[in-house]
């Protein structure tokens, strides 16, 4: 029964990635290689981020919200953007269209993130007899994270790969990318400084990620149109 629960939570956490890959044209163009490379880049980025976090951040004993430390965290989160930039521009992808490239990179990125951050807690925690909502929430968070990463990758491809985009949209694109990058810090602020419940927080994450995805999609299709 408890392995059953683990299975359920694993489906919720990792299922959407697989569904996304098989449902969209990504599977038809066989972009798995790109995703794997993006995941590898994510690993490297995560390592660099860990080193930075360990170097520049104090370990806070109490779980309070320190604005200065959080600002540092936001800055460190921008390393993610650098990683994405590397994955999108520097890696020699097979000749796939930009539309598919950013999806493959975002998918690989999000999947690597889920595996690194959620698989071990899931394995250790969800198999126990004790029932908590925690792992279901964690799965939902993984869903929101997938959407966020796809949006960020889409904006990244707009910023770095597309040359002829409408000039008026450029500041909006950069602002959205900034918001997406600071999203983890925003949720951390809500959790710790505002003391939001996990259920409320997960709802917010889902909602905000869907909103950002919608905006990114609109921007992407606006740039797609011939000027």
């Amino acid at each position: 029964m408890t392995v059953f629960h683990f299975f359920n939570c694993a489906i919720l956490t990792f299922g959407p990635h697989a569904v996304y890959y098989s449902a969209t044209p990504l599977s038809e163009y066989d972009t798995i290689g790109t995703s794997v490379k993006a995941a590898a880049v994510y690993l490297g980025t995560a390592l660099v981020k860990l080193v930075c976090l360990a170097t520049f951040l104090n370990v806070s004993e109490n779980d309070c919200f320190d604005p200065y430390q959080e600002l540092l965290k936001v800055l460190i989160n921008f390393i993610d953007v650098a990683g994405l930039y590397f994955a999108l521009t520097q890696l020699t992808h097979r000749n796939i269209s930009q539309t598919h490239k950013f999806q493959a990179v975002g998918l690989g990125w999000a999947f690597a993130d889920s595996v690194l951050h959620r698989l071990v807690p899931l394995w250790v925690g969800a198999r126990g007899l004790e029932f908590t909502w925690e792992y279901i929430y964690q799965g939902l968070e993984a869903n929101a994270n997938l959407v966020l990463n796809l949006s960020l990758a889409a904006l990244g491809s707009l910023m770095w790969l597309r040359k002829n985009k409408p000039r008026t949209l450029i500041p909006i694109i950069y602002a959205c990318a900034g918001v997406l990058t600071t999203m983890p810090s925003i949720t951390s602020y809500l959790r710790r400084a505002m003391g939001w419940q996990t259920s409320k927080l997960v709802g917010f994450e889902l909602f905000s990620s869907l909103m950002m995805a919608f905006i990114s999609w609109q921007l992407f299709s606006a740039c797609q149109r011939p000027a």
Partner: peptide, 20 residues
């Protein structure tokens, strides 16, 4: 342990299947 029953996990599985 505070446990959820099998019925709950079955329902969850159905809901997840529908979602996917």
């Amino acid at each position: 342990y505070q446990v959820a029953s099998v019925a709950f996990d079955l329902l969850l599985l159905l809901a997840l299947g529908a979602y996917l």
